[in-house]
């Protein structure tokens, strides 16, 4: 106990710094992937055959391979080919590479959820908009969008919760997120070595954060219950 109390301030500080990086990756992924997913979704539904075919292939590959492999390929592959990393050096470079991999991976998952959400809006809604002289843009923005959002909030919530924990995969390219921070006390850091408890302790951070998100997403779901 004495040892724990001595180590606690150092560990707590290091884990907080790591968690900040986790949060950053989480936020950047959502900000990038939510709109990019919609673009990919429109692309896969495009009437231009080559566009939809290529995008469907991309979505299949991205969803069909582990995110960990994608991280490794995106981080190391350019270096192997061009002889120099395009991501820049150090933590900033690792973060950029991670963000690209995560945004792309999650956008592909989101695109499929969007597609289901749009398909679930009855065709009669679009037709009702058409006969009222609305443009395609107005129909999407004023009619389809909110109905789609209502339908996709539960599956998107699921993905968001998964994303919180998936950020730990960036450990594989040594991004200094919270798992990396916890693990550093095993190898030795800040004068502490051979300690496993900081690594276990990281789970509390994930648990609290997903707890907060679950409450917030539940509130959003409730908010959309005013219509059916």
């Amino acid at each position: 106990m004495q040892k724990f109390l001595e180590q606690w301030p150092t560990v707590f500080n290091a884990l907080n710094i790591g968690f900040l990086q986790t949060l950053k990756l989480f936020a950047v992924t959502l900000i990038g992937a939510l709109p990019l997913g919609l673009l990919i979704c429109f692309g896969t539904m495009s009437k231009i055959k080559p566009v939809s075919m290529i995008l469907k292939l991309v979505v299949w590959v991205v969803r069909g391979t582990p995110l960990m492999i994608q991280l490794l390929i995106i981080y190391y592959f350019p270096g192997l080919i061009f002889g120099t990393s395009i991501w820049g050096s150090g933590e900033a470079g690792r973060f950029t590479a991670s963000a690209v991999a995560f945004v792309f991976n999650y956008a592909c998952y989101f695109s499929e959820i969007y597609r289901g959400g749009i398909a679930a809006v009855p065709i009669g809604q679009r037709e009702a908009g058409l006969v009222l002289g609305m443009t395609k843009k107005q129909i999407f923005g004023r009619i389809t969008l909110l109905q789609m959002i209502k339908r996709i909030v539960p599956p998107i919530s699921n993905e968001v919760i998964t994303l919180v924990k998936d950020t730990s995969l960036a450990r594989i390219i040594a991004l200094q997120e919270i798992i990396w921070a916890g693990q550093s006390f095993l190898k030795g850091s800040h004068g502490i070595a051979g300690e496993i408890w900081p690594l276990f302790f990281t789970a509390i951070y994930y648990l609290l954060f997903t707890g907060v998100l679950t409450i917030l997403l539940g509130k959003l779901e409730k908010k959309l219950e005013f219509f059916r």
Binding site: P122, L130, V131, G133, T135, I143
Partner: peptide
């Protein structure tokens, strides 16, 4: 053009069998 098509559509109002009201 979409604009012209919209204008021509507006000669008619349509009431659907299953209403198709906008739920939101």
């Amino acid at each position: 053009s979409e604009k012209e098509l919209r204008a021509r559509r507006l000669h008619f109002g349509l009431v659907f069998q299953n209403f198709n009201l906008f739920p939101q």
